[in-house]
C-alpha cells in the first residue's frame, strides 16, 4: 500500500506544481469557467489513457488507440446521431473487434505493437470512409452532458474524478482487475492456476475498447462534430499519460488514478507553455523536457525507496 502511495505522490505533485504555475500566470484560470476551459479537453485524453493503461497492464502496448478514438468519434457524429440503434451496434462491434484482437494476439503469440500498428491504419481508413470530409454532428445528449454546468465543481473535474474512481475500483479493487494485473505480471503462473489467459487478454482489450469508445464520444461532445484525423495525437499522449502517472511498461504495474492525473498533467503542460508564450518551435521539445524531468524524478524517488 505504501509503495502505491509513493507511486502516486510524484504525479500528483507535478500536477499541483503546474497548476500553481498556471494560476500564478493567469489568475483568470482560477475560476469555475477557467478550470473548465483548462481541463475539458483532457476528459477524452484521460479516457484514452485509461484504455491504453488497460493494454499496458497486460504487458502489451496499443498503437492504434488514437485512430480508434478518431473512428469512434466519426461513428458518434454520423451513425449515432442519425440512426442511434445502428450507431450503438457499430460501436459494440468495434469493442468486440478490440476484444478479438486481444485474443488473437495471445492465441498466435503475435507482438501487440505490430498488430495494433496495423489496426491503426484500418481504423483510420474506416473513419475516412465514413466521413471523407470533416463534418457530422454530435448527438444532443452527449453535448448536453459534456457541456453541463453542475453547481460548484466544473464538469471536467467531476468527469475526471469519476473516471479515476471507476478505474481504481475496476483495476485495483475488483477480483477481475487483480487477475488482469497478474496476467501482465506473470501470465504463465496465471494459466497454470487454471485461468484462460486468452479470455483474460480479450477482456482487457475489450475494456480498453469500451474506454476508447467513451473517449471518442466525449471528444465529439466537446467539438460538436468530427474529423477522421481528430485524435491522432492520442496514441502518444495516452502512453505518456500512463507512464507519467506511475505505470510501467513491464505490465501489471499500473495506476488508474495516476493515469488520469498523468493525462491532466500533459494537458496542463500544453497550456502552461502557451501561457509563457514559448515559440512553437520549442514547444514539442519543452513538452518532452517536462516528461523527462518527471520520469527522472520518479527514478530518483524509487531508488531512495528501495534503499
Amino acid at each position: 500500500m505504501r509503495r502505491m502511495d509513493l507511486r502516486l505522490l510524484l504525479p500528483t505533485l507535478s500536477l499541483l506544481l503546474l497548476l500553481g504555475a498556471v494560476f500564478w500566470m493567469q489568475p483568470r484560470a482560477m475560476s469555475y469557467t477557467g478550470l473548465n476551459l483548462l481541463f475539458n479537453l483532457s476528459v477524452p485524453i484521460a479516457l484514452a489513457t485509461i484504455a491504453q493503461m488497460l493494454v499496458i497492464m497486460v504487458d502489451d502496448i496499443d498503437l492504434s488507440i488514437g485512430t480508434f478514438v478518431g473512428f469512434c468519434a466519426c461513428v458518434t457524429a454520423t451513425f449515432l446521431h442519425d440512426t442511434p440503434l445502428l450507431g450503438v451496434l457499430i460501436l459494440g462491434a468495434a469493442v468486440a473487434a478490440y476484444a478479438a484482437l486481444g485474443a488473437l494476439i495471445e492465441l498466435r503469440g503475435l507482438p501487440a505493437i505490430v498488430v495494433t500498428l496495423g489496426m491503426s491504419f484500418v481504423w483510420s481508413g474506416l473513419a475516412v470512409l465514413m466521413l471523407p470530409a470533416p463534418g457530422g454532428s454530435s448527438p444532443a445528449w452527449i453535448t448536453a452532458l459534456m457541456k453541463a454546468r453542475p453547481p460548484l465543481v466544473p464538469m471536467a473535474i467531476i468527469a475526471c474524478v469519476v473516471l479515476a474512481v471507476v478505474g481504481h475500483l475496476l483495476v485495483t479493487r475488483s477480483s477481475l482487475g487483480t487477475l488482469l494485473r497478474a496476467v501482465g505480471g506473470n501470465a504463465r503462473s496465471v494459466s497454470r492456476v487454471g485461468w484462460s489467459v486468452v479470455r483474460l487478454k480479450a477482456t482487457a482489450y475489450g475494456l480498453a475498447g469500451v474506454f476508447g469508445v467513451l473517449s471518442g464520444m466525449a471528444l465529439v461532445g466537446l467539438t460538436t462534430s468530427a474529423d477522421a484525423n481528430i485524435a491522432l495525437r492520442y496514441t502518444l499522449l495516452s502512453i505518456a499519460g500512463v507512464i507519467l502517472g506511475g505505470g510501467e511498461f513491464t505490465g501489471g504495474r499500473v495506476s488508474p488514478v495516476g493515469a488520469v492525473i498523468g493525462a491532466l498533467t500533459l494537458t496542463l503542460a500544453g497550456s502552461f507553455l502557451t501561457f509563457i508564450r514559448l515559440s512553437p518551435d520549442w514547444q514539442i521539445g519543452a513538452q518532452g523536457v517536462i516528461l523527462i524531468v518527471v520520469l527522472a524524478a520518479r527514478l530518483l524517488v524509487r531508488r531512495r525507496a528501495v534503499r
Partner: peptide
C-alpha cells in the same frame, strides 16, 4: 496582436490553444 502556432498540426491541440486564449481574455 500576438500570433500562436500549434506545435503539431492537430485539431485537438488547436482547440486547447483557443480555450487558453479565451482564458487569457
Amino acid at each position: 496582436a500576438p500570433a500562436f502556432t500549434t506545435a503539431e498540426n492537430q485539431a485537438t491541440e488547436q482547440a486547447a490553444q483557443i480555450q487558453n486564449m479565451i482564458l487569457e481574455g
